[in-house]
Design a protein around this nucleic acid. Structure first.
Lengths: 210, 210
DNA sequence: GTCTATACTGAGATAGAC
DNA sequence: GTCTATCTCAGTATAGAC
């Protein structure tokens, strides 16, 4: 079981025992975020999610209906989470606001799979249901920055553009150590000079034993 | 068979007949780019690629070895293509250079699946082989803009950031018409006011009958 | 609330003919 | 150079017990 899932389990019920459906759902959503984040929607199996959460595969299906519905909940939850994080960073002096909001974004790196899930959802507009959720989520974030944080159209565009670039850096794993690969981290150094350390160890791994 | 594939076929051999392996490979790569672009790596079947190219599924495997190898060639080809497009846009007055390079990027929207493939590869750094190709491709683009086009580090970062934002807009299909969805195109309007028209009809469709 | 067993399907890959 | 037939496995989902 993943550490996060274990934590939830521990705090909510005696190990191995039964939990309230609500707690179990949350636990599975955490695990699913990590796995979907590491392996993309299509690349993830409900069985891996189940193993990561420490439950049986059929039970995941039982609880969420289908893999697609599970994913939709994961995406929705990720956007909600990010929106909360943004809102929490708005109050305070206007000068540091953009920096605080940026930090709120990269801060989510600590919640396994959160950023990769959002980044991934960004490529799924062609999917009917999922696309709707992703567009709505993205749109809500945009409105938040534009309206609640009071950024101009241009500032908002730049803010999101940098966010998408961070997604790419994270998705490409430009933060890792690829000894023989030319120019790999060089891009990151130029891109976000002070971020190299921050990212280390926080990226989801595809070959994790889920 | 897809229109593009049919074109190649026509120009190279009598319909339905045999082609040189080289031409057939190219034809399949074009089809594969469109399908991978619309459905992502894991979401694409070799059978769909085969049908889009007008050949049998086992033959696709025969020619490229595995689905992964096929995808790697597709990604490599996409990065090569974009690099060429960038290089072709560098000569000329320095003032219009950034605009020309940007246009070179969006211009690739006309080549089915090209941009979606690049955008998608950007999330696959966790995959050993594919990740290496994607990092190398991205890195090469970066070096091209930085060194050959002579952008400063900051200009380069901004240029790529906007490119990634375009990827998101395209991936989310913020260009489409989603009547009931709130704020969907509103984001695009603010983002790239003059681009709405440009994008129309150029986005890959997931439910195309491949 | 949760599991085991299993049915069903789809997809990658192989064999071998033409 | 290209196809048809087919093997094989993995993955979603269902049935039903505890």
């Amino acid at each position: 079981m993943s550490p996060e899932a274990a934590e939830i389990l521990e705090s909510a019920a005696p190990a191995g025992g039964r939990m309230s459906a609500a707690d179990r759902r949350e636990q599975i959503l955490i695990a699913a975020t990590a796995v979907f984040g590491a392996k993309t929607y299509v690349g993830t199996t409900t069985d891996e999610v189940a193993r990561a959460a420490g439950v049986s595969q059929p039970y995941v299906v039982r609880l969420f209906g289908t893999k697609e519905k599970l994913y939709i909940e994961v995406v929705q939850r990720a956007y909600d989470r990010l929106l909360d994080a943004f809102r929490a960073s708005i109050p305070g002096p206007a000068e540091g606001r953009e920096k605080r909001l940026g930090a709120a974004y990269t801060g989510l790196l600590a919640e396994r799979g959160m950023l990769p899930v959002i980044a991934g959802s960004t490529a799924m507009g062609g999917e009917a249901e999922i696309g709707r959720v992703a567009r709505a989520g993205f749109s809500a974030l945009w409105q938040c920055i534009r309206t609640e944080a009071g950024f101009s159209a241009e500032e908002t565009r730049t803010f999101f553009a940098i966010g998408m670039l961070i997604n790419a850096v994270v998705g490409l794993r430009l933060t890792g150590d690829y000894g023989s690969e030319v120019n790999a981290t060089e891009v990151l150094d130029e891109c976000f000079p002070d971020a190299v350390e921050k990212f280390r160890g926080l990226l989801p791994t595809v070959d994790e034993p889920w």
